[in-house]
Design a protein around this nucleic acid. Structure first.
Length: 507
RNA sequence: GGCGAGUUCGUCUAGUUGGCCCAGGACGUCAGGUUUUCAUCCUGAAGAUCAGGAGUUCGAAUCUCCUACUCGCUACCA
């Protein structure tokens, strides 16, 4: 049977990068095994719903190039894929569990439970709604049947809680961690069905995974503690459980905690794929896309945070990732996000791309700077400077002088290169350049070198001063290639201006 | 507090059936080289007594036990 996997986020805000990795692993697993990858939106908590979050999630995966086969926004034969739209189907399942003795109605109010917890806390104990305490609570186990029926009929708010069998070892088989065993006595009777008529994650998750024929549940490690509940639920329903794989967490670069939104802001890298503006607070969080990361670089980097292909290869296309992917190469320990490594990945991907592929990324930058330039010219520039870019926005800093004349000159470079009589020498060089009609790079190079040699000048100083005049700093590609691209007329203008600004230095 | 999971260079990791590992690769760092400059690129170096301890064994990063630390969960949130 071909596997069916899902990514099931809650639309409570922007998609965290850890969630992106979870989705990616699901996707890779599905593609590798000719399976199906679907998107389910788990919006059972109405109080945490955030406007725009679902659209954000879909857009993020579009940008990343991780397509779903089924689900919200696509459709499919197991829909609807939004839990809020499946609301009606959960209640019968909850009632079935009650009928079968796997669950019970509980009428305790949140306030009462809160009081219990506080009371226990004051005695340095913890209150848990479980096999030891449930007979002392207000529920269908302790109330007479008629009263339960009456309460239900009168609309008395209730929840449905799972009733763990006493003292039973529950075995969870995990594809990454092996067998995890826990005794039911330690577990609390989780709420499956809330008083607002919505299922909790646990119920909805199991019902949906089953009805959507999910074969493998690949999710974050934070779900491991509730996995025993889930296997018990499958057992209670008499359903075959899917295979579980609990992924290691993505950690913050410093310290050990889970990577959070604040860490990104604090350490200067995005935690979200796309920029996100919180509709309530108006607060904006940066995204990989807006920070100038390439989507395939992000995917590649994320894939390697907690998994490896079993060889030394690190740069992999999506196709290669799919090809190499295997759950048993996923590591157990959490991985710290590294900005340096992310930077390197992005750099490598920029290098890999052709000027044609890169052009659409840079075109908006030029537009923003008010530059109009021939695309062919821009692409030539891209080829010339792309090996010095880490992120898309670096483009302007590294290539601006191909489009606009410098207005300032790096003082350090002036000090080092711009020596006595430089205006005279530069004007002589300009004359040589002007004399070559039509301009020829090699010819210009040879002629200028000859001039320098004949007059016993310092090559580094003359050439770098010319570079300084053209670029405004001591950097950039090969000098004569730049002159050819920018044009002799412009070079003359820039050099005259540099001479005017910097002047002659004596002594 | 309870329960669970994890622990190899600063970071990501290789190491899955104990010997070829006094632990390999990558990022980062440092030093050279290439370059008229910067970047790229190339070469090299430093960097983990495999969390600690005890045991099993001729032999352990790899098996067992104990300890420590870190993280996760402990809601009518997912």
């Amino acid at each position: 049977m071909n596997p069916r996997v899902r990514f099931a986020p809650s639309p409570t805000g922007p998609l965290h990068i850890g969630g992106v990795r979870t989705a990616l692993y699901n996707y890779l697993f599905a593609k590798k095994n000719n399976g199906t990858f679907l998107l389910r939106i788990e919006d059972t908590d109405q109080t945490r719903f955030v406007e725009g979050a679902e659209a954000y999630i879909i857009e993020a995966f579009q940008w990343l190039g991780i397509p779903f086969d089924e689900g919200v926004g696509i459709g499919g034969e197991y829909g609807p894929y939004r839990q809020s739209e499946r609301k009606a189907m959960y209640k019968p399942y909850a009632e079935q569990l009650v009928r079968d003795g796997w669950a019970y109605y509980a009428f305790d109010t949140p306030e009462e439970l809160d009081a219990k917890r506080k009371e226990a806390e004051s005695q340095k104990k913890t209150f848990q709604y479980d096999a030891h305490t449930r007979m002392g609570m207000v529920n269908s186990l302790t109330l007479p049947a008629e009263e339960v029926a009456a309460r239900l009929a009168s609309g008395n708010p209730y929840v449905v809680r799972f009733k763990y069998p006493a003292d039973t070892d529950i075995h969870v088989q995990d594809l990454i961690r092996g067998e995890v065993v826990i005794n039911s006595n330690l577990l609390d009777d989780k709420v499956l069905y809330k008083s607002d008529g919505m299922p909790t994650y646990h119920l909805a998750n199991i019902v949906d995974d089953h009805t959507m024929k999910i074969t493998h549940v690949i999710r974050g490690e934070e779900w491991l503690p509730s996995a025993p509940l889930h296997v018990m639920l499958y057992k209670a329903f008499g359903w075959e459980a899917p295979q579980f794989a609990h992924l290691p967490l993505l950690l913050k670069p410093d310290g050990n905690g889970k990577l959070s939104k604040r860490d990104g802001d604090r350490l200067g890298f995005p935690v979200f794929p796309l920029q996100w503006k919180d509709p309530k607070s108006g607060e904006t969080s940066s995204g990989y896309r807006e920070s100038g990361y390439l989507p395939d670089a992000v995917v590649n980097m994320l894939a390697l945070l907690g998994w490896n292909p079993g060889n030394d290869q690190e740069l992999m296309s999506m196709e290669e990732l799919v090809n190499y992917f295997s759950i048993d190469k996923i590591s157990k320990a959490g991985a710290k996000f590294s900005l340096d490594k992310a930077k390197w990945f992005n750099h490598e991907y920029i290098l890999q791309k052709s000027a044609d592929e890169l052009y659409p990324y840079f075109e908006p930058i030029l537009k923003e700077k008010g530059v109009t330039a021939d695309p062919a010219y821009v692409k030539t520039v891209i080829d010339l400077i792309k090996d010095r870019l880490n992120f898309i926005p670096d483009f302007w800093e590294q290539a601006c002088y191909f489009f606009v004349a410098p207005t300032e000159y790096d003082p350090q470079a002036i000090k080092k290169r711009w020596k006595e009589n430089m205006p005279t020498y530069l004007r002589a060089v300009l004359d040589i350049l002007k004399g070559i009609q039509p301009f020829d790079k090699q010819q210009a190079h040879d002629a200028v070198m000859a001039y320098i040699q004949d007059n016993e000048l310092n090559m580094g100083q003359v050439l770098n001063s010319l570079r300084l005049a053209i670029v405004g700093a001591a950097r950039g590609p090969e000098l004569f290639t730049m002159i050819e691209l920018i044009g002799v007329d412009e070079v003359v203008k820039r050099t005259e201006r540099a001479i005017e600004v910097i002047g002659d230095i004596h002594g």
